[in-house]
């Protein structure tokens, strides 16, 4: 590479007078506007993790679920719960947030024991029946749970990772979806909206 000595260059442009065409300025300002627009949007972008799409199931009939309960072996079907609000809770024994949310679910069930208008149904996500039922016993839950061994129930409900919870109306319509651990306030608020 050569260091250049430009002082003697004939093309030294200092003295040249060039008219800048209007087209050029127009093009430059269009590009500028587009870039500034993009940067403006980026500046107000939320962090990637906070965004999730609303479930396409909301407002639609909840896909049916049937199977044997891991808690007492009885045959359970979502259709048999018609007439009650159903809290459909996807959980697993290996999932720490599921453990964290269980007091909220238990308290919620306890609060509605008199009106008897709310049922909780657990769906085991990627776990064995024995571990899941031990988990339920250890947190003090008494509701039915179905083991979704093949993951087909999770796919029907568009579940990614436990815990995820759905609120289903007495007529069998999906009313709300909670991603991550539920809170008592959240459950009360959601059910209050539809009662």
């Amino acid at each position: 590479m050569v260091t250049t000595d430009n002082d003697t260059t004939e093309n030294n442009g200092q003295d040249r007078q060039i008219r800048i065409s209007k087209q050029r300025i127009l093009l430059a300002s269009t590009i500028l506007l587009v870039i500034l627009g993009i940067i403006g949007v980026l500046a107000y972008s939320p962090a990637a993790t906070t965004i999730s799409t609303p479930s396409p199931l909301l407002g639609k009939v909840a896909p049916n679920i049937a199977g044997n309960s891991i808690t007492n072996g009885s045959y359970v079907s979502l259709q048999n719960y018609r007439g009650k609000f159903v809290i459909l809770n996807f959980f697993a024994s290996w999932c720490t947030p599921c453990f964290d949310e269980s007091p909220a679910l238990i308290t919620f069930a306890y609060n509605h024991r008199k009106t008897n208008n709310v049922a909780i149904l657990g769906i085991v996500f990627s776990d064995t029946s024995s571990r899941a039922s031990n988990f339920l016993k250890s947190v003090g839950a008494t509701w039915n749970a179905i083991n979704d061994q093949s993951g087909s129930i999770a796919i029907k409900y568009g579940v990614s990772e436990p815990p995820e919870t759905f609120l289903i109306s007495p007529s069998g319509i999906v009313l709300a979806k909670f991603i991550g651990p539920v809170t008592l306030a959240g459950l009360n608020e959601a059910i209050g909206r539809y009662q």
Binding site: I20, I25, L32, L36, I39, L42, A43
Partner: peptide, 25 residues
């Protein structure tokens, strides 16, 4: 946000240079 400010500055300077200075060379 600081990086975005930097990008705006770079874009402004670059576009200015290409539009008004480049024709001279």
């Amino acid at each position: 946000i600081y990086l975005l400010v930097a990008i705006v500055a770079i874009v402004l300077v670059s576009l200015f240079a290409i539009t008004f200075l480049a024709p001279m060379i």
